[in-house]
Simulated scan of single mutants.
Amino acid sequence: MKKYSIMFFVLITTAMNAQWDKTAFNIAYRFTGRNVVQAGLEFKANIAREQSLIIGASMLYTSINHKDQFLPEANMYYTNIKGQLLGVSANPYSIEPRIGFSLFNFMYLNTGYALPIHREKYFKGITFGVQFNIAPVKNSAFYDRLKMM
């Protein structure tokens, strides 16, 4: 656990040195065979307005065998101007490919399938989630803009 916490704080420090206008805090709820709450940082890796490549690091909070657990997670999302979302996330227990909808990179509604990679299959099966991304600066480049005719 200590090793994962150190890795998480190294990722946060790296993101803090990144451009603030392309960074956002995330908070999410997912059901992956169990209730999971997520918080972390997201970074928009490109500057295109029509599509976005978002990478992030988060901590998951869940209860496993009646014990509170904090698990690190890395994720990557691709979104386009039509609001389509493709993504994948990985944590110590599963890899989760996802599809869904993005509302200007502010809110993600997604579903996917958790593929267990650990002999203890805590996360498995169909997943559902909602995620909110909150940019720390005004007029953030993280959010997609509405294209007017």
Rank of each mutant, 00 (worst) to 15 (best):
M1F: 15
M1K: 10
K2V: 12
K2E: 12
Y4L: 05
I6W: 06
M7E: 07
M7D: 01
F9G: 04
L11K: 07
T14L: 10
A15H: 02
Q19G: 05
W20C: 02
K22F: 01
T23I: 05
A24V: 00
I27A: 07
Y29F: 13
Y29Q: 10
Y29R: 05
Y29V: 04
T32D: 15
G33H: 00
R34G: 13
R34A: 13
N35L: 03
V37F: 11
V37R: 13
A39V: 09
G40L: 00
G40M: 00
G40E: 02
G40Y: 03
K44Q: 02
A45G: 12
I47W: 12
I47K: 15
A48S: 14
A48K: 14
R49I: 04
Q51I: 11
Q51V: 12
Q51T: 13
L53P: 08
I55F: 07
A57P: 05
Y61G: 11
T62K: 09
T62A: 09
S63N: 15
I64W: 07
N65K: 14
N65M: 09
N65H: 10
N65T: 11
Q69K: 10
L71M: 10
L71K: 10
P72S: 05
A74I: 00
A74F: 06
A74L: 09
Y78N: 08
Q84T: 15
S89D: 11
A90K: 07
N91V: 02
I95K: 01
R98S: 01
I99M: 08
I99C: 00
G100D: 04
F101S: 04
F106I: 09
L109Q: 10
N110M: 02
L115Q: 03
E120F: 09
E120Q: 14
F123T: 03
I126D: 14
I126A: 15
F128S: 15
F128E: 07
I134L: 12
I134D: 06
I134M: 05
V137E: 03
K138H: 15
